[in-house]
Nucleic acid binder design. Sequence first.
DNA 1: ACAAAAGTGTTATACGTACACCCATGA
DNA 2: TCATGGGTGTACGTATAACACTTTTGT
Lengths: 226, 226
Amino acid sequence: MTQFYNEYPKVLVSVDCIIFGFNGNNLQVLIGKRKMDPGRGEWSLYGGFVGANENLEDAANRVILDLTGMKNLYIRQVGAFGRIDRDPGERVISIAYCALINVVDYDDSLRIEHGLEWVSLNELPELYSDHRTMIHDAICQIRRRINHEPLSFKLLPDLFTLTQLQHVFEAVMGEEIDKRNFRKRVKDIDFIEKTELIDKVTSKRGAALYRFNKKAYEEDPSFILK
Amino acid sequence: MTQFYNEYPKVLVSVDCIIFGFNGNNLQVLIGKRKMDPGRGEWSLYGGFVGANENLEDAANRVILDLTGMKNLYIRQVGAFGRIDRDPGERVISIAYCALINVVDYDDSLRIEHGLEWVSLNELPELYSDHRTMIHDAICQIRRRINHEPLSFKLLPDLFTLTQLQHVFEAVMGEEIDKRNFRKRVKDIDFIEKTELIDKVTSKRGAALYRFNKKAYEEDPSFILK
DNA sequence: ACAAAAGTGTTATACGTACACCCATGA
DNA sequence: TCATGGGTGTACGTATAACACTTTTGT
């Protein structure tokens, strides 16, 4: 079986998934209480071991599909976490992935079935092992990317108001943005398209609904919002 | 031995090290021809397997020490690479690390002993497995960081001229920089200190030598060069 | 004397930021 | 009628980018 590298140690490799959602005000992460030893009962990200014939990203997508029923999400590797004693059971090296989902698309019964909770970033409890570091690294990465990649739309429905979009940016960056300046910048971005539709849910007056035009983006993916 | 996760597959985990140097004009990477199967004779990064009781970064530092005799280098994780068939021998997941060294400090006999070559980024040959992707990801990361972290000095001697420093930035970013604008920005950075020393090697007139003041940096690590 | 690299300021433009009021509607 | 969120423009200051000539010295 092993042909070349007989003499070297093998270790368990897992993926841990940081699933971000947006509740209108805050970025939230899906966490749950561990249902197995070691660490039973501690708050934890959801993860899984990488199969012998499974790519890392496939493993992450498998875990996320299991958790959310969703496919083809925006997903990025956050990094490898391999501290010797990071898993109290035995040596496990874990590759963290983060994904962004629109919570409205999420079938909440799946969340309950898995015993998961949406927790706002600023209300995170103590977490198992190095999971807090993973989340921290993930949010740093998203902050870096949000002004250069069309991330923000992944956290929103297909149709969204500019106020909703602004709230996503504010939640990710952790600071308030001036409404007029924000809208001025958005106007310059061709692939954020105004539709004829009006959202009457979030305000009495009604707000114009916008849409991310993927084709327009792919024709000219230059994108610097700030 | 295995207490908790008996049923899951274990795999080999390695680190691959992307060692960047600067030759005065170009960024260069240390690569060598593989001396073992699989892939014997192909150009490759230098790596090593992660020990059962070894942290990932420790493994990377071990490999780099072996290769260069140098410790405490600037080192960053680039990412985990785990495509099923990335290693033709058997499943190996590799964590890529990049390091920056000042080539003048490097004992060239070690390079020769390991059969390594400095190769400029724009002259890379075909590389073993996914090593080209690793290098690509590493340089992208350095480009992102060079304006926010004091990286550039790691590629230079302790004393350097502003022209040398500018050449580092140009090599990393892959574009020319205006000399006057560059020097203007450097003047605003307190921890890049002018010394009384003059370098007479690189020019007839002589150029002032500068130094990175680590203490000053740590007191005020805010740093945006561009 | 000349070649080669060091060193030095000004100006125009673009960009980011601060800021306050009217509008439309449902309750 | 009033409370709520939607929508709009300007002025100022800062940061960035473009640009050319003089100095020193070794050969």
